[in-house]
């Protein structure tokens, strides 16, 4: 596990080697038309993924984290969803201006994605081998034989025991953890620079989860400039894997910072509350768990000021009227909270 420490301080090193960010999302707005009006699932989100880093996006349901990531690959079902504005640049190239065919070339080759439900992401009527080979043949134009050999290699790499034999099996013959390994193998077929993982371990058991996370870290360590964008609601998973963290709430980025800073010294009241309400961080016998009061507001009736003002315990009048900007702090992180205005200057 030496690579663990390596990944933790590698972004700075990688960033000097290749100055620009790998993926740059600027002021992204993804809206959904619903019967009750326009639901602003993602409302002006900006973040960047540096080469070689693992960026975590954390948030609860309805925070817009998944929609933001699906928007990067333009996988928003339209209708009802549409990208209303903003900019997505991959290695400097604007993704939102690409044609459908150009997008298809980027998906899989340059940016790959793995999803929460490996059961539904694989086609049940084709064998695992066929599905891996299909990806290889489409993107890399390999011969049948070469594709088969490469597919076995890939399945070996994701530690599927007896890979050659299991090529002939169908998805239902695999367990959830094994299927997620297959999904990773398919995603990594073409050596993508960016892997977007949308809740990759949420449907799995803890012991399987830790196997999959270790696998992802290990594969990542093999390629120094590749990046992972990990979307999850599980703060533990983020802490274990990510270099930097983006905290989302109400369709907006609320806090960005290094993992050590976010977990060690959360600055946004929401981040602070999230961490404090975890039972694993609670000392037994300290009375009840810390709670954030209230419920996540619906994307249809977000408060006008700060999105968190209805549940914040440090709220004051200005919060309800005026949405705070994302204040940049001296240490490079950013927090969307009026309380940090002074410090940001």
């Amino acid at each position: 596990m030496t690579m663990q420490t390596q990944t933790h301080d590698s972004p700075a090193h990688a960033a000097t080697a290749n100055p620009g960010p790998l993926l740059e999302v600027r002021d992204l707005k993804t809206y959904f038309r619903t019967e009750a009006g326009i639901s602003k699932a993602v409302d002006g989100v900006s973040f960047e993924v540096l080469p070689g880093e693992i960026l975590g996006i954390v948030g609860e349901s309805g925070s817009g984290k998944s929609v933001a990531c699906l928007s990067v690959l333009r996988l928003i079902p339209d209708p009802p969803g549409y990208i209303a504005g903003g900019e997505i640049r991959y290695r400097g190239e604007p993704l939102l201006e690409k044609s459908y065919a150009q997008m298809r070339a980027i998906r899989g080759n340059e940016i790959a994605m793995i999803f929460q439900e490996p059961m539904t992401a694989l086609n049940p009527v084709f064998t695992i081998g066929m599905q891996v080979m299909e990806t290889l043949r489409r993107h890399q134009r390999l011969s049948r034989r070469a594709a088969r050999e490469r597919a076995v290699e890939m399945l070996d790499a994701v530690k599927i025991p007896d890979a050659r034999k299991r090529m002939k099996d169908y998805p239902h013959q695999f367990s959830g953890g094994m299927l997620q390994r297959v999904m990773i193998a398919i995603a990594l077929c073409c050596n993508p620079r960016l892997l977007i993982a949308d809740e990759p371990t949420t449907a799995l058991d803890v012991t399987t989860q830790s196997q999959i996370l270790d696998l992802m870290l290990e594969l990542k360590a093999r390629r120094d400039d590749a990046s992972i964008l990990l979307v999850t609601h599980d703060l533990g998973v983020v802490a274990e894997t990510c270099d930097r963290v983006v905290v989302m709430y109400g369709g907006k980025v609320q806090e960005v910072g290094s993992a050590t800073r976010i977990f060690g010294q959360p600055r946004h009241p929401y981040t602070h509350g999230l961490l404090a309400s975890l039972p694993s961080r609670h000392r037994k016998g300290d009375g009840p768990l810390y709670t954030i009061p209230g419920n996540v507001p619906s994307a249809l009736d977000m408060p006008t000021g700060c999105k968190f003002c209805t549940r914040c315990d440090r709220v004051f009048d200005r919060c309800r009227l005026e949405e705070p900007p994302l204040h940049r702090l001296p240490d490079g992180s950013a927090v969307r909270c009026h309380l940090l205005e002074e410090e940001a200057r």
Partner: peptide
């Protein structure tokens, strides 16, 4: 033991090197 050590800890500074992994599938 494996179950307890597999639980991700929301603290990036925890040393994970002595984690007990279990192999294979249930």
């Amino acid at each position: 033991q494996a179950l307890v050590s597999s639980v991700p800890v929301p603290d990036p500074n925890v040393d994970r090197s002595n984690r007990i992994q279990i192999k294979g599938e249930i």
